[in-house]
Nucleic acid binder design. Structure first.
Lengths: 142, 142
DNA sequence: ATAGCTGCAAATGCTTTGCAAGGCC
DNA sequence: GGCCTTGCAAAGCATTTGCAGCTAT
């Protein structure tokens, strides 16, 4: 169970309410794990394991539902780097990622460190929704 | 069944052999579908459906295996744009993609139309393996 | 002949869904 | 109380694997 002072809990609850989500025990727990330590990159399974280790009662299905609700509400952003698993990022602003394909770890790259220039026009009848840069890395000498 | 002249078939067979793969009926069929019409972006399911409509005998499992063998052999490249489905691109050189998230269609962007500058150093102990830029687009007014 | 392929079906891994029970306002 | 949320289990996809039979060289 998430252990933080009552002010922080109240901030979380207000944040959820502002997003149009009822502050339930599970949502508070997951929001606490996601947002207390700054920027994080999680998969549903990892977040679920953390919640369980934290003595919280949350099912994996609820973790999935919650991650999507948070994403729809703008509290999270999905990062696509693996065709078999979804990653969620607590940093919703524009930025990019390193993805270590061996350890499967994500690292942020500030948006201002990558400049995409001379962008071609999108296909006819479409509009640009977002630009994602993923730099795949592997351990050296391995 | 793929219908092309014997010269083209022989070219395909040699290409497979050069990649260290036995030119079997299934591989010729799939290679024919993939490489005869220039650059293509396919999922396993789409390629399988095409092969079946072409009166070829190929199982979906073989399509999956073949796509990965071709990728390992450098004939294909995997493009990660969806966390639930794998796309394969017949264009293996450096370039980027538009991904229409509604129609799920991929469009190439030549590498020289996108410039990624001031690239930050990769995380300690890792080396860069590749840079992928994905521009997500949606239909206009919808 | 034999090492490599294929097909099927079953297994796997991640994710979603249906529905009854429970919790928030 | 009423509606939203949760949990469980089952279902749903995409993908991989085991193994017997087939095939290219």
């Amino acid at each position: 169970m998430i252990k933080i002072d009552s002010t922080a809990i109240e901030t979380l609850r207000q944040r959820l309410r502002a997003a149009g989500l009822r502050p339930t025990r599970q949502r508070e727990e997951l929001a606490g794990l996601l947002f207390r330590d700054g920027n994080r990159h999680v998969t549903a399974e990892v977040l679920h394991r953390e919640a369980i280790q934290d003595d919280a009662q949350v099912s994996l299905a609820t973790v999935y539902n919650t991650l999507h609700q948070f994403t729809r509400a703008g509290l999270l952003r999905e990062v696509v780097v693996d065709s078999g698993r979804a990653y969620f990022d607590t940093h919703t602003g524009p930025h990019h990622h390193f993805f270590n394909t061996v350890s499967q770890e994500l690292t942020d790259i500030p948006a201002d460190r990558v400049l995409v220039v001379d962008l071609p026009a999108p296909p006819t009848g479409t509009q640009v929704d977002g630009v994602e840069v993923v730099i795949r890395v592997t351990p050296q000498n391995g």
